[in-house]
Amino acid sequence: MTKVNVPDRLLSAPELLAAHRLLRGLPPEAALQMTAHAQLQQVRSAQILFHEGDAAHHYLLLASGQVEVLRYSQSGDERVFQVFETGQLVAEAAMFMPHGRYPMCARARSAAHIYRLQRDSLHQACRQWPQLAMNMLTGLSSTLYAQVNKVDWITSSSAGERLANYLLNLKERQGASIQLPLNQRQLAAYLGIRAETLSRLFTDWQARGYIAGKRSDWALCDEAYLRRLASPAQRSF
């Protein structure tokens, strides 16, 4: 068995999961049930954690580092759908899919520690604590609503509007200095625009003083302009 080097500050699976939104209003026993037989794994950057189409027996709890989920097109291009951080769950929804397979590929974005949690333990916990199932439904409904809004936004917005909205959302999560979690090619695919268009927007906005930075590190210098540009994406609920 490969030895896993565990940092001193690494939380246990029940400790990490107890702080997750899914466990709101639930006793500590729920986290213990969900993490029964959890397996800690140390992974390297770019390591594939599961492939699209693999049998979905486990979902992931991220203890350190970053993980991204992606799909490959018929031409081999990859599209990153989401980047996960410490404390987040990856592929918990796949544990309930009727075909029993992962709909995407998961890849370590950096060196990371992950807990592999068992599908059967999650199912048993949902039966034992109905509030857990309700919390999962709430989270899945929110995700579905966000995706509906995203499809509507992409089909009715310009490239500049999409980029402005994306950068503002990053600022809300990261603060004044933002770091792009995707490279420009991945970001262009995520926003549904051409890579050349995205590069031109960054160059033009930097020349006009709207943003400042390079590569993945940026600051928003004219937030008022970006908010006016992104305003069609803001919804009242």
Rank of each mutant, 00 (worst) to 15 (best):
R24I: 08
R24S: 12
G25N: 01
G25D: 06
L26E: 00
L26S: 01
L26W: 00
P27F: 00
P28V: 03
P28I: 03
E29R: 11
A30E: 03
A31W: 00
A31H: 00
Q33K: 09
Q33S: 11
T35I: 08
T35V: 07
A36D: 13
A38S: 14
A38N: 08
A38C: 12
A38H: 09
L40S: 06
V43Y: 00
V43A: 04
R44S: 12
S45G: 10
S45L: 09
A46I: 11
I48D: 08
L49S: 12
E52M: 09
G53M: 11
G53Y: 05
A55C: 13
H57G: 13
Y59N: 00
Y59H: 12
L62H: 14
L62C: 10
S64L: 08
S64F: 07
Q66F: 10
Q66E: 15
V67Y: 01
V67C: 11
V67Q: 09
E68Y: 14
E68H: 13
L70H: 14
Y72P: 05
Y72Q: 13
S75W: 04
G76V: 10
E78L: 11
E78I: 04
R79V: 12
V80I: 15
V80M: 05
F81K: 06
Q82S: 15
V83E: 04
F84H: 05
Q88E: 15
Q88V: 13
L89V: 05
L89I: 01
V90I: 02
A94F: 03
M95L: 03
F96C: 02
M97W: 08
M97G: 13
P98D: 00
H99A: 06
H99R: 13
G100V: 08
R101A: 04
R101L: 14
Y102V: 09
M104D: 04
A106G: 14
A106T: 09
A106W: 13
A106L: 12
A106R: 10
A108H: 10
R109F: 07
S110K: 00
A111T: 06
A111H: 06
I114G: 01
I114L: 06
Y115M: 11
Y115A: 01
R116D: 04
R116M: 12
R116P: 00
L117I: 07
L117W: 12
R119F: 11
Q124T: 10
Q124W: 06
A125D: 13
C126S: 00
R127L: 14
Q128I: 11
W129I: 05
P130N: 05
Q131W: 02
L132S: 01
L132P: 04
A133S: 02
M134Y: 09
N135D: 03
M136G: 12
L137E: 08
L137R: 01
T138Q: 08
G139E: 09
G139H: 11
L144K: 07
L144V: 08
Y145R: 15
A146Y: 07
Q147G: 00
V148L: 06
V148E: 03
V148Y: 06
